[in-house]
Design a protein around this nucleic acid. Structure first.
Length: 897
RNA sequence: GGGCGGUUAGCUCAGCGGUUUAGAGCGUUCGCCUCACACGCGAAAGGCCAGAGGUUCAAAUCCUCUACCGCCCACCA
């Protein structure tokens, strides 16, 4: 005998093993079948799976399993991402705990450690995906890594193609520098956060005069690199001073007062200090006015090229000193509190420094034009659609993409330099390692996958590779086709590409999704996927972002351990509504667990009533009302389910089935069917139950793979033409019958039953007390009621349900449902006042709605303008209510006697 | 500054092709260990659908404005 409560752990492990062993998810190229391909957003190998992964991969798995069960050749391509800065930071932290700095061990050794880390962590992540129930084939040959050999070649090839078309260049531009991670970042890798700071007003004396100009700044320390002050050309206050020279306080440098219409007259004092090397806007002005660029902040965030006093200080320390000195020397006019946005590194949260730097860039505008078009014309569809507009806006304002990173972990830029020919363009550290390359200063890159054999210029063979690595998103952007071996023309590539759908969170739409579309179009001239299912972020139950510092993190592994994987998947899936963020709590998983248990117990119920050797078959001639009703309902539910699933409304689909199973199938149909278990109708009833339940667990399998597989294996001999496993089965509609009459009739019966139950409950009948119910008041009671008195009897725990009139010498609790009067026999000492109140209350409610409707009916505008069917409907309702009112009145007057 | 999303039961949210008495889950209350399930069953209480206008025979639902909350984008030093 199966235990009463479902025990997930052993069941889950069992099926994980079997599915892998049976190679069910192994990709097969089958040209007779339509492929449904999804590439996984490769998880970074930074550690363990978190709730975001759990959500993302649950949703993908639901889609994949659904498509597989819909007859498509579903293939979910798996792999992990090397994760550039994020992963390097993880190892750096580990090293720090060991008391080692990465510079101590050097690049080569460091990378050795990184690869070792990959071996361990990559494995962990894959195992966790397995635990999540992902229908992925985990054989080694099917697992990719963004930095494995094949992918490395894809990356090189992509770089080469862009380079050859002049779309990759190395140039000196304003970039975002993270002094902590010690690397450049692209614009989207900077997050802006509001910070309380100050606005300092500083006097800049005018050369050869006692007068001065006051500038306002949030970054006084950058004044060390000021090479101008700018005002708006229209600004009357400063017009005549334009072109004069100022003396830069603390430094003594002579700088020009320039006019530029980028300066806002209304802000601060209307005069801006210009630091071309450390501010994007200032850089533009610097270029426009031919100003000197003086870099005063070093890569490690310290002051350089400045008076002795400040050199070597960290930026914030320098700020303090400078403000102090300005104040002491009388240059500081005032400081006012000021709130403004500060850029922070998305990987380490430290302040980023804008600075001029020579880096590799991709010219993005020209290659992303096609992306704009395919989104605009719907070749790539977003679910929900509301993301389209932000995507287009972003593309319209796209900037060149800084792709070089000064870290060690990643794809090394495939550029080699002949040591002899590159001269001063190659910069080495004291150990003789290459640390920087400057094409500006003469470095000559040769783009190559491997070290070139000889220099085309001098014939020399002494090469050095560019020390930088590529932005991790560069390889991610190629993922949908690099996974299939591109640029090699593989069979996989031609069969599985373009992929079908992408499932991802909205936070990486710009960072990743748009870039994939762009590279797909650029390198293969085909979109990488046509559907993008965009989900939200898993938050805590109050809508707060989960974070370690807030202590509100829920660990999916704990949850799976505690409640089972299916339970967690259920709660994630049902919460993923409309692409919105998901408020998540342990409580919501409990709901999932309860549902898993419910399903499991249905299967127990079925199994308990099956006998070996007996046949169970639904027979059409034996169909009664409840059968017709459940068939009709289940037909509708399957249609609804498919429609929702096909439109990526997974949560709604799950909710639909959930409601059907629990409320209709279990609470009504199974309860009714219990009456027939010991009758000759058993075979018919059980047959029908099995059929409906089979379709239910199939619909639920994508959401809750383990429990449904377990149930399937327990019951499948009873199914028609069962497959070996539910994963491999097809969702089929067992019936194509929609019976509105049966649904309506059943509705009446349900109402009557509920009314009797309410009476029982309100008048405190013990649940086991059997009662006598009389149905009366209708001259000719419909046949369907007569036929199904047994339902009423059974579900309302009645000893007898009689059609007729109440007996005069007995006491009844009376109520009205539709046209029927219901008399529930009771002791004479029932609380009459309570009953009166009950009836009155009900009557009042009906009267109120009747008044409303009668008013509508007397309104000519309504009867003339509203559709005929509406008017008829209202009329019918009024009539029904009037009958009901008269019956209730009769009952009330009965009390007065 | 621009854009997007939200404001419905104590909590988290559905409903927004216009028309019953506005739903669900959780929580609460009452009664039940009813032979699948107490991770359950039955019943109940609980809502001027953020506010103000407008369109309409009819508005939680469509339009406009306002308030508040949350995101995203933007070089206002």
């Amino acid at each position: 005998m199966l235990p009463k409560v479902y025990e997930p752990k052993s069941v889950e492990n069992k099926w994980i093993d079997i599915w892998q062993k049976e190679k069910i998810f192994f990709p097969k190229i089958d040209k007779s079948k339509k492929p449904f391909t999804v590439v996984i957003p490769p998880p970074n190998i930074t550690g363990a799976l978190h709730m975001g992964h759990a959500l993302n991969n649950t949703l993908q798995d639901i889609l994949i399993r659904y498509k597989r069960m819909s007859g498509e050749n579903a293939y979910w391509v798996v792999g992990t991402d090397h994760g550039g800065i994020a992963t390097q930071n993880v190892l750096e932290k580990i090293l720090k705990n060991e008391g080692v700095k990465k510079t101590d061990i050097g690049r080569e050794k460091f990378l050795e450690r990184m690869w070792k880390w990959y071996e361990e962590c990559g494995h962990t992540i894959l195992n966790q995906l397995k635990k999540l129930g992902c229908s992925i084939d985990f054989s080694k040959e099917n697992v990719r890594f963004t930095m494995d050999k094949e992918r490395a070649y894809s990356v090189f090839w992509a770089f080469k193609e862009l380079w050859e078309k002049g779309l990759i260049y190395r140039g000196e531009r304003m970039i975002n520098w993270c002094p902590r991670c010690y690397t450049a970042l692209s614009d989207i890798e900077v997050e802006y956060e509001e910070e309380k700071s100050k606005l300092w007003h500083i006097k800049y004396p005018i050369d050869g005069s006692d007068d001065f100009i006051v500038v306002a700044t949030t970054r006084p320390e950058t004044m060390l690199g000021d090479t101008a002050v700018a005002v708006n050309p229209e600004d009357k206050r400063y017009k005549k001073l334009i072109g004069k020279f100022l003396i830069l306080p603390l430094v003594g440098r002579k700088i020009r007062l320039i006019a530029d219409k980028k300066v806002e007259m209304g802000f601060g004092t209307g005069a801006v200090k210009v630091t071309p090397a450390h501010d994007p806007l200032d850089m533009e002005m610097g270029e426009g006015h031919n100003l000197e660029f003086i870099k005063v902040i070093s890569d490690d965030g310290k002051i350089i090229n400045s008076p002795e006093k400040y050199s070597g200080l960290k930026v914030l320390k320098a700020r303090e000193e400078i403000v102090k000195d300005l104040s002491e020397q009388g240059y500081l006019v005032k400081e006012e509190p000021y709130v403004h946005n500060v850029g922070k590194c998305y990987r380490c949260d430290n302040h980023i420094e804008p600075m001029i730097s020579e880096q590799w860039f991709v010219k993005y505008k020209p290659i992303s034009e096609n992306t704009l078009n395919v989104i605009k014309n719907g070749e790539v569809k977003f679910y929900p659609e509301r993301w389209v507009k932000p995507m287009l806006d972003w593309l319209n304002n796209i900037q060149d993409w800084c792709i070089s990173r000064q870290i060690w972990w990643g794809h090394r830029i495939p550029a080699f330099y002949c040591k002899k020919c590159s001269g001063k363009g190659l910069i080495y550290n004291e150990k003789g390692e290459i640390v920087k390359v400057s094409i500006k200063n003469g470095a000559k890159p040769i783009i190559s996958f491997e070290k070139p054999s000889s220099c085309p210029d001098c014939g020399g063979a002494d090469f050095v590779q560019d020390p930088d690595v590529l932005d991790t998103w560069f390889s991610s952007a190629l993922w949908p086709f690099s996974v299939f071996g591109w640029p090699r023309k593989t069979e996989e590539l031609s069969y599985f590409y373009p992929t079908s759908a992408l499932v991802t969170g909205y936070e990486i739409l710009y960072l990743w999704v748009l870039r994939m579309i762009t590279s797909g179009l650029f390198h293969l001239n085909r979109i990488p996927f046509s559907k993008v299912y965009v989900h939200g972020i898993v938050r805590d139950k109050h809508g707060q972002k989960m974070s370690k510092s807030k202590g509100n993190v829920i660990d999916p592994l704990d949850m799976m351990e505690k409640y089972g994987t299916d339970a967690m998947r259920f709660s994630l899936a049902i919460g993923a509504l409309g692409g919105k963020d998901i408020p998540f709590s342990e409580n919501s998983i409990i709901g999932g667990r309860n549902f898993v248990n419910k399903l499991y117990n249905v299967s127990r119920f079925i199994q308990m009533n099956l006998k070996e050797g007996e046949k169970y078959e639904a027979v059409e001639s034996k169909m009664d009302l409840s059968d017709k009703w459940i068939i009709s309902r289940s037909s509708k539910i399957i249609d609804e389910y498919k429609k929702l699933m096909d439109n990526y409304m997974l949560s709604e689909a799950l909710d639909t089935v959930y409601g059907f199973v629990w409320d209709e199938f279990c609470d009504w149909y199974l309860e009714i069917s219990k009456m027939y278990i010991n009758t000759e109708l058993k075979s018919h009833k059980m047959g029908l139950i099995i059929k409906v339940f089979e379709s239910v667990i199939k619909m639920l399998h994508p959401f809750m793979p383990f429990v449904t597989e377990e149930i399937y294996s327990a019951l499948k001999e009873r199914f028609e033409n069962p497959e070996k496993f539910i994963v491999d089965s097809k969702i089929k509609k067992p019936f194509h019958i929609k019976d509105e009459k049966a649904e309506a009739d059943m509705g009446v019966l349900m109402e009557i039953i509920r009314e009797i139950r309410t009476v029982r409950s309100e008048f405190s009948f013990h649940p086991t007390k059997e009662i006598v119910v009389v149905l009366a008041g209708v001259s000719e009671i419909e046949k369907n009621i007569l036929d199904h008195l047994s339902y009423i009897k059974h579900l309302s725990k009645s000893a007898a349900v009689i059609i007729g009139s109440p007996e005069k010498d007995k006491t009844y609790i009376k109520s009205v449902v539709r046209n029927y009067e219901i008399y529930v026999e009771c002791d004479s000492n029932i609380d009459i006042e309570k009953e009166k109140l009950r009836i009155k209350k009900e009557m009042d409610e009906i009267k109120i709605s009747n008044e409303k409707w009668e008013k509508m009916l007397s309104n000519k505008d309504f009867t003339e303008k509203a559709p005929e069917s509406e008017v008829v409907k209202i009329k019918e309702r009024v009539n029904e209510n009037n009958i009901k009112i008269s019956k209730l009145e009769k009952i009330l007057s009965g009390f007065e006697r």
